[in-house]
Amino acid sequence: MSAGGAGGGATAAYPQQTIMAIGAVGGLAGIYLGHFMPPAFSFFGGLGAICAIVWGADAVRRVASYGLGTGVPSIGMIALGMGIVAALFGLSVGGIAGPIVSFIAAAIIGAVIGVLANKVIGMGIPIMEQAMVEIAGAGTLAIIGLSVVIAGTFNYADVVQNVVANGYIALIFIIGGMGILHPFNANLGPDEKQDRTLMLAVEKAAIAVVITGFASSLHEGLMAAGLNIFVGLVIWAFAFMKYYELVKRDAFSVVGTGLLPSAEELE
């Protein structure tokens, strides 16, 4: 029994090239802005992470529509597994080009795993190689972006000190993965629509920014943390309202159930 997906390509309103461009360019731009601006503007890293998470969710949507055989969460977890390995590697050797080196390393690891999945394991999903490259790249940028929110920079020594050593990296791992895997997992089905799925990705990514904003108070102080949380909350509120609108648009009807009946009414 295949979990999720009817076995075929997904129809899309936004072409994948547009989303790839938003994810890769927006992600890297946000990370670099967050790095070079003063610590108070570290929320730019979060904006980059939102772009990357939307891209990752779209790639998951495309590949999981073919039916992976195992639930959608597995592909989100492999995205972040590859992402964390590539992200720390790139930051350690790349210096100022760290995020780009990470991105390339992620693409290579993703391509190898994609080829292995199709050629050796024989999954037979035509877009597996490309999707794995995209998912690995998006996972990497999401991790670096959220790290920039906490550390204010992507300098390896600072990231290790402020994000990895105190364990915040585990938090980033799970909330980043949730942003990438959850939107399609929650929306899949015959009536799945791309804009609704991606809006849920924005909403999940905004929650990630709020949570990393809380974590950033340890290192960046309350002012910067407050700004991070505020930016995250504004985006979250907007995305949640928009998502609710789209749910109402796609639902047959939305009805209130009222309060639970009281004991007398049940008799």
């Binding site: 597994g81 590859m82 390995v85 795993i113 585990a170």
Partner: peptide
Amino acid sequence: AMFAIGIFFVNAVI
């Protein structure tokens, strides 16, 4: 620990 977890997930999904 993070690298071990990353490698673990990759090898659990394959």
